[in-house]
Write a protein that binds this DNA or RNA. Structure first.
Length: 211
DNA sequence: TCGATTTGACCGCT
DNA sequence: AGCGGTCAAATCGA
């Protein structure tokens, strides 16, 4: 799956897992090199998750992050901050709702609010504006089977199953979908499954979402 | 001192 | 041959 996250000059925001960089390559046709990361617990816990991070050509403040594999490790206590310490999703939504954009050409849903949850600042100081520049986007299912992943009803969920901030994402999306398109505000624990159970018209009309 | 990053080499695939 | 991905020695830094 792919996540776009703007993180300013520092790079993409922490996604709740600890990563170790193992390579960097200049990619043909890309202005910026691609960084290769694997889970820090690859050896200790046999976690096979990897990710690729590449700064976008058009918007240098945005990084494309491609996750491969699945985390089998337990996120560290430090990486996964206690929920009580994180700002409520509604608060994030309120300040960042204007960041929601939908790219109907590529089927990419970008929501700054979800990103805010992902960034989950631990302190009020870095809550903004750094958080406001964050924006993960979620693509339609990609060819995850080419990476030897176990078959899944919703392949795109793979990278997020153990995401520490999945709950926040869920909250945010619930908050975003306040229209009649959503009948069930409370949904199962799998954010992506929820996302794909949306009314197909959701997110296709940005103006109606944010008049 | 030890884990993380950097960076050129290396490898498999097309 | 060229490209994307990974390895690993050198280097960095807390």
């Amino acid at each position: 799956m792919r996540v776009s996250a703007a993180g300013g000059a520092e790079g993409p925001v922490d996604d709740g897992h600890s990563w170790r960089k193992y390579g960097q390559k200049d990619i043909l046709g890309a202005k910026h090199p691609r960084g290769y990361y694997r889970c820090t617990h690859r050896n200790s816990q046999g976690c096979s998750a990897t990710k690729q991070v590449q700064r976008r050509d058009d918007d240098t403040s945005v990084f494309d992050v491609v996750y491969h594999g699945e985390h089998t490790c337990r996120p560290s206590a430090a990486a996964a901050a206690p929920a009580a310490k994180r700002p409520h999703a509604q608060t994030i939504l309120q300040s960042l709702s204007t960041g929601l954009t939908v790219n109907t050409d590529t089927n990419i849903l970008t929501t700054a609010a979800a990103a805010a949850a992902a960034a989950a600042p631990l302190t009020p100081e870095n809550r903004s504006p750094a958080v406001q520049s964050v924006s993960p986007s979620l693509t339609s299912p990609v060819a995850s089977d080419s990476y030897g992943l176990a078959p899944s009803p919703c392949p795109v969920t793979t990278g997020y199953r153990d995401w520490p901030y999945a709950v926040e994402l869920q909250e945010v999306v619930s908050a975003l979908a306040t229209g009649p398109a959503v009948a069930e505000p409370a949904i199962d624990s799998d954010f992506m499954r929820y996302y794909f159970e949306f009314d197909p018209t959701f997110g296709m009309d940005q103006a109606s979402l944010f008049p």
